[in-house]
Design a protein around this nucleic acid. Structure first.
Lengths: 236, 236
DNA sequence: CCTTGTCAACTAACATGTTAGTCTACAAGA
DNA sequence: TCTTGTAGACTAACATGTTAGTTGACAAGG
């Protein structure tokens, strides 16, 4: 109801991505939304997107339909499309769902892991330590993501990672607003190490407990955002 | 590679459903696939679907795109679309994902439930007992589904049920092949009661254990299908 | 000043025309 | 007989034309 900012063309070219045209448009728009280059509440203008990306309305329509399905945009029938506002309810739900999937994965991996899988987690842990020592926060951020993905990969269920990503898209977007504080990185490393030890000891319950604690650290930090950046959250 | 059966018009009218045209077509096709009226491997012919449902290609294309996203159909680019075969890998994965979500839900509900929520579960349990006593297997099947949905509803996370449904679509389709055996219904009731008792006692661990055991009963029965109905499973 | 009705501009949704890639059948050659 | 190449039919993917519903500005009336 407040801002109807015109959709500027800060949208990287389509050729960065691969797949069908619709897929490329989808990825380009998703990245723009998740990286907050498209701000919550902003109106998406199909005509401009078509022009900027040099495609017709069909692939853009399909891409927007997928984004709507994921909850990243709100389509008002016969009227318009806008980038979804942040919603603490959505974020809490996404966090819960992702936690459910990660907990199940880590328990399974703690039970069933092979030595080569463990070696891969071990290597990732050592990499995290190394990056912290060097103060490479961005690198640590990526290693962090990998640490969370490895157990899901090791379950042998290929869709798991995609589903985990799908349910936590809102969380991912919200995390973009959290400044990477160095102190937090060290804490994170410690919490990861607790999960790692439990996997090493093949102790599913301990692994779940450690991961539950670790994931529980995120929501309070996001909740603080609703206070500092209220304009990004839905007004309803 | 084997059968390229022509897509017959056993597809109920579109007016049964509500929403946009694309949504109606999507629901109609999904129901036909889940109920096995469209058999695995069968080729979907857009032209026939358009004619039968009296719509143009646009909503049909959108519907098929969504079904492909869910894994219910396989689209071969520039070539054709066919109903996905059963895949034990997919089914095992769906079962794992659904279990992860249900376990998380039931633990949360065992911890946080209100008295009015408990009363609703209690009512459902008594309904299940009643239907078993009357030998109403179909009615019990529906009460069974509700029993599994209630904890998800009580979490207060509206998307949870939809995500659980999404990840276990293949399981749902496979369940259609399982004959409802009366003996199994009685066992099911006992297993449900164990979950119920744990929720009553506000014991999350016991609730998870009981539900884990209950859900663990399903996969072996589905696995038997791969032996008896191999033509429905992917040949790869 | 506030309400209410109308109308024009804009949009998503739908229909339809066009393009380009894939598969099958079949014929020609080995 | 088996391979290989090729033409044609079929398809998804894409482009574009059309329809119908929503919104907001603004004027007329209270």
């Amino acid at each position: 109801m407040t801002n109807t900012d015109i959709d500027a063309a800060r949208l990287q070219g389509i050729s960065t991505f691969e797949g069908s045209l619709a897929q490329k448009v989808y990825l380009a728009l998703q990245e723009a939304i998740l990286s907050l280059q498209f701000r919550p509440g902003e109106v998406l203008r199909k005509a401009l997107i078509c022009e900027k990306l040099g495609v017709s309305r069909s692939p853009v329509a399909e891409a927007i339909a997928r984004l709507a399905n994921e909850g990243l945009v709100d389509v008002i029938p016969q009227s318009g499309t806008r980038v979804a506002y942040f919603s603490m309810d959505d974020i809490r739900e996404g966090s819960f769902l992702r936690q459910a999937l990660e907990l199940a994965s880590v328990a399974k991996v703690a039970s069933d892991r092979t030595e080569v899988q463990f070696a891969q987690i071990n290597r990732n842990m050592r990499l995290q330590t190394l990056l912290i020592e060097d103060g490479d926060i961005l690198g640590f951020y990526q290693a962090d993501e990998e640490f969370h993905e490895l157990p899901m990969l090791f379950t042998g269920f290929p869709r798991l990672k995609a589903v985990a990503r799908l349910v936590s898209l809102q969380v991912t977007r919200a995390r973009m607003l959290l400044l990477p504080t160095p102190g937090r990185a060290v804490e994170t490393l410690d919490e990861h190490r607790a999960v790692f030890k439990a996997i090493q000891n093949r102790n599913p319950d301990a692994a779940q407990a450690a991961l539950r604690y670790h994931l529980g650290q995120l929501m309070p930090r996001i909740e603080a955002l609703a206070e500092t950046r209220p304009e990004l959250f839905q007004s309803s």
